[in-house]
């Protein structure tokens, strides 16, 4: 007798649990759909400011940047994504000075760990949230992020870090060397 009761109660509990499940899907049938309609929603799509998509070197209106070609970003990069090449020039007053030739960054290798940005002594590079970076060939992923003909921005503030780094510059960059200054990025005002 008990087994018969168990048989029927099992049957009805089972059916009711199934109907409960179906009621959930029925309700979901009418809920708002969550799929992002990319690329139609391009104009309304909000990508967080902090989202790391592309390494850029901000240039001002005079085509000047803040990179002193010290190579710290290159040394800090865990997998050799950044290659900084520099050249020595002589300034008007006769001093020898190292200036940036190319700052090359490989999107295909980058793990977006942000170490280059937080260790940069002159805040010359940052990650931008431009997310549409697909290209057709791999070689296009290797990008030169300093603009053509750009110069180092002359600022009193920046003289200091430039002078403080000669020790680092003297060393060959092949040897991985960490010069980390953990400089927490200030929260960007939303």
């Amino acid at each position: 007798m008990r087994s018969i009761a168990k048989y029927f109660s099992g049957l009805f509990i089972g059916i009711s649990s199934l109907l409960k499940g179906m009621s959930v899907t029925w309700r979901e049938l009418w809920t708002k759909k969550v799929t992002q309609q990319y690329p139609e929603n391009r104009d309304t799509l909000v990508i967080s400011d902090r989202f790391r998509c592309e390494l850029v070197m901000p240039h001002d209106e005079n085509n000047e940047h803040a990179c002193t070609a010290c190579g710290i970003c290159q040394m800090n990069c865990p997998n050799g994504t950044i290659v900084v090449t520099s050249q020595m020039i002589e300034t008007e007053d006769g001093k020898k000075k190292k200036i940036l030739d190319t700052h090359q960054w490989d999107l295909g290798m980058c793990t977006f760990c942000n170490l280059c940005v937080i260790t940069c002594p002159s805040d010359a590079i940052k990650f931008e949230n431009t997310y549409e970076n697909a290209v057709f060939t791999r070689s296009k992923l290797v990008q030169k992020i300093n603009h053509e003909g750009s110069k180092l921005r002359e600022k009193k503030k920046e003289v200091k870090p430039v002078e403080a780094k000669p020790v680092v510059e003297a060393k060959p960059v092949v040897e991985k060397k960490a010069v980390e200054e953990v400089k927490p990025e200030e929260p960007k005002a939303e």
Partner: peptide, 8 residues
């Protein structure tokens, strides 16, 4: 199916 699953 998509509508059941909150998709389009």
């Amino acid at each position: 199916t998509a509508f059941f699953q909150a998709r389009f």
